[in-house]
């Protein structure tokens, strides 16, 4: 039997984007679409929040997808099958609201494409027409979106896959075309979710964003993840991570996300100079 937090499978989905399947039956038994986990790579490690991308309740596994951007995710990417994480706690946050809305557009960018997959899947199961707009090159991720969507539209900034441009351009065109959209769900970089919210606002389409603020505890104790929603301070970890995108103060979120930019760059430089172990 695998040990708790053991990595059972590892795949590279795109350069620097990796997927790990991890043994954790207590999370696998409970997790729902839209929830996240917090992991630690090692005893010195940060607490890193990551969306639960997939799970298998029977075999007791949970799948995460991450992009190597800083020391912690680089270290995570170095782990191999048979290694174990130091910690993995969850499921955290509230599950996505799943209902029969009609036509739902799921907009994902970067690793958000992986994160939105379980939400699209549950929306499809609930009888919605699901249109996925994804900004990604990974064939695996495109294929996965196709499995759970009625229609998939791909964009890349260099046009190497699908349309050249941003997911928000595609979303705008869809709304301009007069298609009746009942709900938009967006998961990805904060700037992308902000632009998507701006695109849907004039159309009055309910838009949900799964926020990704800096987080430490994940259980409502530290307040690192606080965001302003409808003029009120909310904790993304236990009141979110999903909020009405039209009510989120994205400018504040974007600024808070940069709080440790200098430290992160310094640590990454040291890490890479030290041989990246």
């Amino acid at each position: 039997m695998p040990k708790l937090f053991e990595i059972l499978e590892k795949r590279e989905l795109a350069p620097r984007i990796k997927e790990l399947k991890i043994y954790n039956p207590r999370i696998a038994a409970k997790v729902k679409a839209g929830q996240f986990l917090i992991i630690r790579v090692s005893e010195e490690g940060e607490r890193i929040p990551l969306t639960a991308v997939d799970w298998d309740r029977r075999e007791g596994t949970v799948t995460i997808v991450f992009q190597e951007v800083g020391v912690s995710t680089y270290k995570l990417g170095k782990l191999e099958v048979g290694d174990a994480l130091a910690d993995m706690v969850g499921p955290l946050g509230n599950p996505s609201e799943i209902d029969t809305f009609g036509t739902v557009v799921c907009v994902g960018g970067g690793v958000g494409v992986a994160a939105i997959y379980p939400i699209a899947r549950e929306l499809k199961r609930a009888g919605n027409k699901v249109i996925s707009i994804i900004g990604v090159r990974s064939r695996d991720l495109i294929y996965r979106a196709m499995e759970v969507s009625d229609e998939v539209r791909v964009t890349t900034d260099d046009g190497s896959k699908g349309r050249r441009g941003f997911v928000s351009d595609e979303l705008r065109d869809l709304l301009v075309s007069g298609l009746k959209v009942d709900r938009v769900v967006t998961v990805g970089p904060a700037i992308m979710m902000k632009v998507c919210a701006d695109v849907t606002r004039p159309y009055g389409v309910k838009t949900i964003a799964s926020l990704n603020p800096i987080m430490v505890c994940g259980i409502g104790v530290c307040g690192a993840c606080r965001v302003e929603v409808a003029g009120k301070t909310r904790f993304a970890c236990f009141e979110g991570p999903e909020f009405d995108a039209h009510q989120v103060n994205f400018d504040e979120l974007l600024k808070r996300l940069k709080a440790y930019r200098a430290e992160e760059q310094m640590a990454l430089k040291l890490y890479l100079e030290g041989g990246g172990r």
């Binding site: 790579v41 010195e44 490690g45 940060e46 607490r47 020391v71 912690s72 270290k75 430490v216 505890c217 104790v221 530290c222 307040g223 690192a224 440790y260 430290e263 992160e264 310094m266 640590a267 040291l270 890490y271």
Partner: peptide
Amino acid sequence: NEFLTRVNLMRAYLFPKYDTP
């Protein structure tokens, strides 16, 4: 809570040996 958690639990006073800044 955040300040003290970073220092006490996450050992941010030993950054970058520990990963939490």
